[in-house]
Each structure stands twice: as C-alpha cells, then as structure tokens.
Amino acid sequence: MPRWGYKIHEDRQVIWEEGDFSLVERIRLAEPSLCLCISCGTCASGCTAAQFTDFSLRRVIIQLQRGRIEEVRQEIDRCMLCGKCILTCPRGVNTRHLVLCIRKELSGDVLY
C-alpha cells in the first residue's frame, strides 16, 4: 500500500443533529428539575466522589442535554449519591434523583 501524504481527521465538532436526545427527554419526565441547571459547577466543586476521580455532575448534565450519551455513560457510575450537591445547588435541582434516574435508564431498568 502506498502511504499517502495525508490522513482523514475525525470531525471534532459537536454536530447537534447527531445527538441522542431521547434520553434527556425521558429523564426530564422523571426529574423535571433537570432543566433548571445553569452549569455553575457547585455540585462538582463540593462533590465527595470528585475528590478521588474525574466526576462532574455539571458536565454529565450538559453532555446529557447535548445528547452525548456515551460521555454520560462513562462518568455517571462514579457518583456516591451522598446528596451533598442537593444541599448546595442554587437552583434546587434534585441532583441525587437525577443521577439515579440517569443510571437507571442507562442500565435498562424501567424508569417509571
């Protein structure tokens, strides 16, 4: 095989149309406070699990809203459900239930 002088790069853009938005819709029904998130990052900054590992609920939520399920799947099971973020979230997002709902959906349990 001749080696060509170039290679094809993977597209680095977030292509909105390629997102999988079915999950976010299902989760939103189960936990409507999902849409209140303003990505302030308070949940992630005080997070008990984030002391030890790369876990950010803020990032999970935004990836979920962008339809990027794979990214959500890679991160979500690190949460300890300790509930600290419920206390600090300035928008009153029911974070703990949100994590549980996402985890449940991704693992194939019936949500509701």
């Binding site: 990505s39 992630a44 950010s56 803020r58």
Partner: peptide, 8 residues
Amino acid sequence: EDTLTAKP
C-alpha cells in the same frame, strides 16, 4: 469547579 476547563 473551573467550569470552563471542566476540572475541579
């Protein structure tokens, strides 16, 4: 959380 670098 430095939300713009997505790092604590």
